[in-house]
Structures are given as structure tokens and as C-alpha cells.
Computed example of a mutant assay.
Amino acid sequence: MNPQNRVAYLTLIISSLAIFLLATITIIKGDTNVSMTIFNTTLPVFASWIGTVLAFYFGRENFESANKQVQHIVTNLTTKSKSQKSIDTIMITPYAMTIFKIEKDSSIDNIKLSDLQEKFLTHKVSRLPILNFQNQIEYMIHQSKINRYLINKNLDAEDISFAIFLKDNREDENDESKRFIVVSKDTAIDETQKKLQKCKKCKDIFVTKNGNREEEIMGWVPDVHLLEI
């Protein structure tokens, strides 16, 4: 028997015994007026006591159940409300991003993998957006990809250019350097999630004014940020 049933039975038994004893005493005394006075005084007390105790134990469970349902509804509504907001409300702005920029007078042939690794280590990041001098997204590089490449080929990062790395990885079906999507700043979060799911192995979203790759980026949303919505 669970604790709630024990409390219910105990409350009813004690109350019944108390009423029975009072009735017995009044019958023995044989005074009708006294009997009515005792019953009129004590019965409301017992009734209130029984109602309060039972409501506390059984009403609390109903309250907790209802409260959980309300919290679930509120959570769903909050999540739905967030997912309908535009993607620019959750993006990381360029000022807060760790990036590597290819300057106008430079090229990927002049960039060494050691230059990229320095960015990874200095800023303690695992993903590095590569922008051109016009602040347009060109590549998204994952630190694990570079590390795996150097280990598998037994190479030193100082000796390999970014251009060679990209060339070797274009033949790799797991190449992630171009696997990202670009959306406009007004695109809803839920719509962005659907676009990301359609892009095979894409993990990053870049935001521009109109959703074109030729535009300057306004922000970046890693896939892990969408998991928090």
C-alpha cells in the first residue's frame, strides 16, 4: 500500500472512531441538547480536518501533474517562438568570430598550414572561417581535418601550403572546406535548420544580407548553436 492510501485510510478510521466515541458518550448521557451541541461543534472540525489532509496528499499530486503539463506547454511555445525568429538573432557577429583573412595581395599559395594552426591554438577554436579581403566566406576549415591530414601523410605544417592541402582534399569525399550554407539575415531559424539538413555533412551557416556567397558575411552560426534552440 502506498503512503497516500495509508494516510487516507488512517484519517478515515480515526475520524470514524472519534465520531463513534462521541455518539456513544452522548447516548449514555441521554441528553439530546448536549448531544446536538457536541455533534454540531465537532463534526465540522472533523470534516475540515479530513478534507484538508486528503486535499493535501491527493491534490498535491494533481497539482504537480498539471504543473508539469503547463511547463511542457510553455517550453514548446518558447521553442516554437524561438524557431520562428530570424537567424540573425542567434548568429555570431564578425567582431566576435575568430577568422583567417586572405589579404588582397596574398593567395592560398602563400598561406602555410602552420599559419592556420597558430590561429587554432592561439584562440582555442576548432573551426576557422577563411574570408577573402572583401569579407566574403571562402572556406571553413576544421582543426581535426588538418591534424588528420598531416598525420596520415607524415608532413610538417610548415612545409605544406593551404593550396596543396585544399587540392589534396578535393579528392576526398569527406572534404569539409566548402560544406557550409549561406542564408539571408531574415531567414527563419527553423527554415535554416531544414536547409542545413539537406546539405550533406554541412555543419556551418553563414549569414549575409540577401543569402548570396558573393556578399560580405554578417555572421556565423555553427550547427551546435541550433541544437540549443
Score class of each variant (00 low, 15 high):
E191H: 11
Q197K: 15
I87E: 05
S107P: 03
K200N: 13
V182R: 08
P44F: 09
G30S: 02
I130P: 07
V183A: 07
H123R: 03
D190T: 08
A47N: 02
F63K: 09
V34M: 10
V7C: 03
P129Q: 03
K124Q: 11
Q84E: 13
E215I: 01
A188C: 02
E171I: 13
L155V: 03
E215T: 05
R148F: 07
I137A: 01
T75Q: 13
V34Y: 15
M36F: 13
N210T: 08
E118A: 09
Q136S: 02
L22V: 02
L12T: 04
F162S: 02
K201S: 10
N132D: 13
K209W: 14
T26E: 10
Q143V: 02
K203H: 15
Q134T: 05
L116K: 01
N154G: 07
T208S: 04
T11M: 09
K85H: 10
M1I: 13
R148M: 09
T75V: 05
T24H: 09
T192V: 07
A96P: 01
R179C: 03
K203C: 05
L113I: 06
F120K: 03
M91C: 04
E103A: 15
L17K: 03
V45T: 08
A47H: 02
L54Y: 08
G219S: 08
N5T: 12
L54S: 04
T42L: 15
N110D: 06
T75H: 15
S86V: 08
T11Q: 02
K195S: 14
L150C: 05
P44C: 09
R213M: 06
I28V: 09
K201T: 04
I90L: 08
N67M: 14
N135K: 10
F20P: 00
N132T: 00
F180G: 01
S35N: 06
D190I: 11
T26F: 00
I205L: 08
T41M: 10
A55H: 12
I27V: 11
L128A: 07
T208K: 01
Q136Y: 03
E171V: 13
K167E: 12
S15M: 09
Q193D: 09
E228R: 14
L226M: 06
F20C: 02
Y57N: 12
Q4G: 07
D168G: 04
R127A: 08
E215A: 05
N169T: 06
I137P: 05
H72K: 13
K167D: 10
K112V: 04
V70I: 14
T187L: 12
D190C: 10
L116R: 00
K29I: 13
I141M: 05
A188W: 08
I25S: 07
K203S: 11
